[in-house]
């Protein structure tokens, strides 16, 4: 398992997407940690294809919603439909009832839809007309957004961003990768050729094993110190929340598992820190105005060079 699972997933996805090994690893970490992912990047960098390929690899149910400004919550969660035969209202499940939900262009959805998604992400349930329906598990939202869009979008509020375990930035590929990508995709970019690499029973076992990965008190102390440093950072108006640190612990655990270990090391924490914390930290506007801060991810990196890990 572990390293092997990562290799199997990477191998399958590389049939369609090239040069995204790091993103694949982070997606897998998020999945094993039981969290949701925000894939951020300009159009055409394979966000959607990567998400679709990943879902296929895991061999579980997958649905996609293309978010639009005129969308209603019921388009996502479902609603009650009158059953003429029995003369009762039946609940018809929406696309959110799945294992992996691709929420494409999430920032195009109006706040009411985003709020409904928030409930699904946080509580693994949806409420329609007072009736609560539980979502299948595992449940993972892979949302995509284009950071360059300003028209017709509803930026995600801080509380919703905090629900995402990770934000993975997808930048343009390097020259060699881009050339290989063009060559490979002269034919069809078909995610249909991707096979499931894990069975349902194996998946259950893996998710159980991740929970057994040990996090020592020293690692917990290290995480708490990182959080404290982020809150004391003058260039930030909002530091890391306790939830963020819990999420970071889950991610470090999942990464340790994928590396074939049953204990977390400081290296695991550092490897996931930027993706887990970057989108939750808010830059201080005065620091932005004077050019002292522009990228929260860079501030996370600086904090990591200051905070002494347990050695």
């Amino acid at each position: 398992m572990d390293m092997d699972l990562r290799e199997r997933v990477s191998e399958q996805i590389s049939n369609v997407v090239i040069g995204r090994e790091k993103e694949v690893k982070l997606l897998l970490v998020s999945f094993l940690a039981g969290g949701h992912v925000l894939l951020e990047g300009v159009p055409g960098v394979s966000k959607t294809v990567l998400a679709k390929s990943f879902a296929r690899c895991m061999g579980i149910d997958f649905k996609r919603i293309q978010f639009t400004p005129d969308m209603l919550p019921m388009d996502m969660v479902g609603g009650f439909v009158f059953n003429m035969k029995d003369r009762v209202f039946d609940f018809r499940k929406g696309p959110v009832f799945t294992n992996i939900l691709l929420a494409d262009e999430i920032n195009r959805a109006p706040p009411k839809v985003q709020s409904a998604l928030l409930e699904a992400m946080q509580e693994f349930q949806v409420t329609v007309e007072g009736q609560t329906e539980t979502l299948p598990r595992p449940f993972m939202v892979i949302a995509t957004q284009n950071p360059q869009e300003f028209h017709g979008v509803y930026p995600l509020p801080e509380n919703q961003l905090d629900r995402f375990l990770m934000r993975i930035e997808m930048s343009y590929p390097d020259l060699a990768t881009e050339s290989a990508l063009i060559k490979r995709n002269l034919g069809d970019m078909d995610t249909g050729q991707i096979k499931a690499v894990v069975s349902a029973a194996e998946l259950v076992k893996v998710l159980e094993d991740v929970q057994k990965v040990k996090v020592s008190d020293e690692i917990i102390g290290y995480l708490a110190t990182i959080a404290k440093e982020s809150r004391a950072e003058a260039r930030l108006s909002l530091g890391a929340s306790p939830r963020a640190m819990v999420h970071m612990t889950h991610c470090a655990r999942a990464l340790a598992f994928l590396e074939g270990r049953d204990y977390v090391t400081p290296e695991d924490v550092k490897q996931v820190a930027v993706e887990v914390l970057g989108h939750r930290l808010k830059l201080d506007q005065s620091a932005v105005l004077v050019g002292k801060a522009s990228d929260p991810g860079q501030i996370v990196r600086e904090i990591l060079t200051r905070v002494k890990p347990p050695r």
Binding site: T265, E267, T305, R306, K308, R311
Partner: peptide, 24 residues
């Protein structure tokens, strides 16, 4: 042994970032 290495680095290579793991 690692304790000794820690002290040696503080003297011999103080320019290493404080936040470095052993791997780094």
């Amino acid at each position: 042994a690692f304790g000794t290495l820690e002290r040696s680095i503080a003297v011999g290579a103080p320019w290493l970032p404080q936040g470095s793991t052993w791997g780094e």
